[in-house]
């Protein structure tokens, strides 16, 4: 069995834990439950003829009380940079974290996940900004942990055979 470590990174209350819960347990709860430290979840997926055990590290959200420890990303096949589409500044936080990770560990595969797509009318993140990021080569997903939109595809993106090459 191939093992693949993925990290969830982003500001607090953007839905990192909810995305993991939706992906691993197909559950969503509306209440916000903060994460302290790191929560590690596992999910086995079959890619082609291989079974991949995904080790998903849900890192505590970034804020004044909690700072990202880049050593947590050691050995990762990649990371999910999560922002909340309804809170524009969480995208700034996410992009700053990406810079910190790159400075500490070099280039690691990542995707930008703009969560809370179910609240699209309340979105603050500018469409032009998303397009500009995509133009710069950033893979962007709009997701909803609440209704499950795009959640499988985000993790499948990493579990694809291309990503496995990075993981091995």
């Amino acid at each position: 069995m191939i093992q693949m470590k993925l990290c969830m990174v982003g500001s607090f209350a953007v839905g990192k834990s909810s995305l993991v819960k939706r992906y691993v347990q197909s559950i969503f709860t509306d209440n916000y439950h903060t994460t302290v430290g790191v929560k590690v979840d596992k999910k086995d997926v079959v890619v082609g003829s291989e079974t991949v055990r995904m080790m998903i590290w849900d890192l505590a959200g970034e804020d004044a009380f909690s700072r990202l420890q880049t050593t947590f990303l050691r050995g990762s096949a990649g990371y999910l940079l999560v922002a909340d589409g309804t809170r524009a500044h969480t995208l700034d936080v996410a992009l700053e974290l990406q810079r910190q990770i790159e400075a500490a560990l070099g280039q690691l595969p990542f995707v930008l996940v703009l969560n809370k797509d179910d609240l699209a009318p309340q979105w603050e993140v500018d469409r032009g900004r998303i397009t500009a990021l995509e133009r710069d080569g950033v893979k962007v997903f709009r997701s909803s942990a609440k209704n499950g939109h795009s959640v499988e595809s985000i993790f499948e993106h990493f579990a694809s055979l291309d990503s496995l090459a990075h993981a091995s």
Binding site: G37, V38, K39, V40, D41, K42
Partner: peptide, 13 residues
Amino acid sequence: SGPWVESAVRGSA
């Protein structure tokens, strides 16, 4: 190490 949660230990966290 900082706190961490193992979620796969006998189904508990």
